[in-house]
């Protein structure tokens, strides 16, 4: 296949998203999943991995903020989740803090050579598992330990390149405040990634409505429309956000 041919897509398995994305995320792309607290970032990422593992694409969850055991417990709310995906090693959970400990990266701020180690560790993990899908939850907590913009840029570029070479499609969780402005901690991250999926809460009739929007996705002619999202036992469902819907704070 010549590079000009249609990009191979990694179907997220979330029908609503795949419809907007013309089949899925271009394979090997690195995508930011940005949103404030409780907007469904982790749930969306978990479904992406479970759907991938079901299709025989090995999937890796790198957790920084929540313990894997708790995440695996949460998976049981999905009716389509099968524990054998974990037992057979198709779905793998790794706690990044324990990796940090093992590597002796205990300090607040990571030195440049320590950033190298983090990239190499993630890359080695992906390659040795043959992972085709990766979630990092969250990128924010990793970037918190990298202070300089150029170091963040370098970290993101190199990580993206490693994952792309491995044919691994990744979702990186970005925790942001409730008012939009930027999609990441430093503002550098969103420029480097191939795509940004934004989640936020809006209020209507006193109830909280979850909304999702594809802000950018390289190699994809996608809709920028807003969709209402619901987390259900059969997975994430989406419906167009009707135009008459009240605009709310993110």
């Amino acid at each position: 296949m010549s590079p000009a041919t249609v990009l191979e897509r990694c179907a997220t398995g979330i029908d609503g998203l795949d419809n907007i994305l013309g089949g899925g995320i271009p394979r090997g792309n690195m995508v930011l999943v940005a949103g404030s607290v409780g907007t469904g970032k982790t749930t969306l990422c978990l479904e992406f991995l479970v759907r991938g593992a079901e299709r025989g694409e090995r999937s890796l969850f790198l957790s920084v903020t929540e313990a894997s055991s708790k995440l695996i417990q949460n998976l049981s709310t999905f009716e389509f989740f099968r524990t054998d995906l974990i037992e057979q090693g198709e779905l793998v959970f790794v706690d990044l803090p324990s990796v940090y400990d093992r590597l002796g990266l205990g300090k607040e701020e990571l030195a440049p050579e320590e950033i190298d180690i983090v990239i190499r560790t993630i890359s080695d993990l992906v390659r040795s598992l043959g992972a085709k899908r990766l979630v990092l939850d969250s990128l924010t907590s990793v970037c918190y330990r990298i202070r300089k913009d150029e170091q963040i840029r370098d970290f993101m570029l190199r990580l993206g390149q490693e994952l792309n070479e491995a044919g691994c499609t990744s979702l990186l969780v970005s925790e942001i405040g409730p008012t939009p402005g930027r999609y990441s901690l430093h503002g550098v991250e969103e420029a480097i990634v191939d795509g940004v999926i934004l989640l936020w809460n809006t209020r209507r009739l006193g109830d909280i409505l979850r909304v999702v929007q594809i802000v950018k996705m390289r190699g994809t002619a996608h809709s920028r429309a807003q969709y209402v999202l619901e987390l259900t036992p059969i997975g994430i469902l989406m419906a167009p956000h009707l135009k008459g819907g009240l605009e709310g704070g993110a």
């Binding site: 209507r204 109830d207 259900t232 469902l237 167009p240 009707l242 819907g245």
Partner: peptide, 20 residues
């Protein structure tokens, strides 16, 4: 659904039941 004004919610529930 909390109200007949929650039209998106109605769509989502119909979708849910169709899949279920």
């Amino acid at each position: 659904v909390e109200s007949p004004r929650a039209l998106e919610e109605i769509m989502l529930r119909v979708e849910y039941l169709l899949r279920k």
